[in-house]
Amino acid sequence: MMTFGEFRRSFYYGDHADMQFKYLARMSDEVAADTMAALLQQLGAAFDTGDLEAVRRVAVEAQVRAYSPPEPPEVEVDGAPFAPLAGDLADRRLTLISAGGVFCVDDDPMGPDGPTQQESLSLIKEFLRGAPTLSRIPVDTPAQRLTARHPGYDARTAQRDVATVFPLAHLRSLAAEGRVRLATEHYAFTGATSHVRLRKDVAPRWAEHMAAREVDAAFLVAT
């Protein structure tokens, strides 16, 4: 028989693996039980009202509670690099970079037979040991030509609406209004990756690449 503790932990890459609720594994039995009861209570109300906002609020608060450290966070790095934005944003070449595992449907960074979103969950350890690949996405790429895969969050959301993590279409609208200027190339990678490799090698290399392409500013999206 499965205990409640085993049940809540199974959402974290277990029998009930679900990236939307994997945070249940980080909670105590008591807090997880209260969270699930609150979600069900609001879901029951939503059957009548059709309003899911209260369900969403409970889920957001549960995520904040599960992931926030118990004590105020402390700085873990040396220094705080800061490059001032020179000039008018409308004259600077802006690039979009998402950690949401977005890529063009005909340019899968894991090859033409790359794993599905569900299959990627079983590869989480390989992702966390490896170096990320930078997917290049031309500025005029329509949303229908983009998809996403990521072993750390439920990328089916981005498959339904890529703007949730890769708002290139919104930036194009702003560019059409003359409010921003966009670079010709935009980027995405899978943020579930080796931080050691990213810090020591990959991120500095990407930064040099973008500087060489005369990128003036970057808009980053975490997932």
Partner: peptide, 22 residues
């Protein structure tokens, strides 16, 4: 994990003079 990755990339970009917002 992903938020940390974005933070590291943002820091690397700023270090070569590219301002970022995350």
């Amino acid at each position: 994990m992903c938020h940390g990755s974005v933070g590291l990339v943002a820091r690397a970009l700023e270090a070569v003079g590219i301002p970022t917002v995350s």
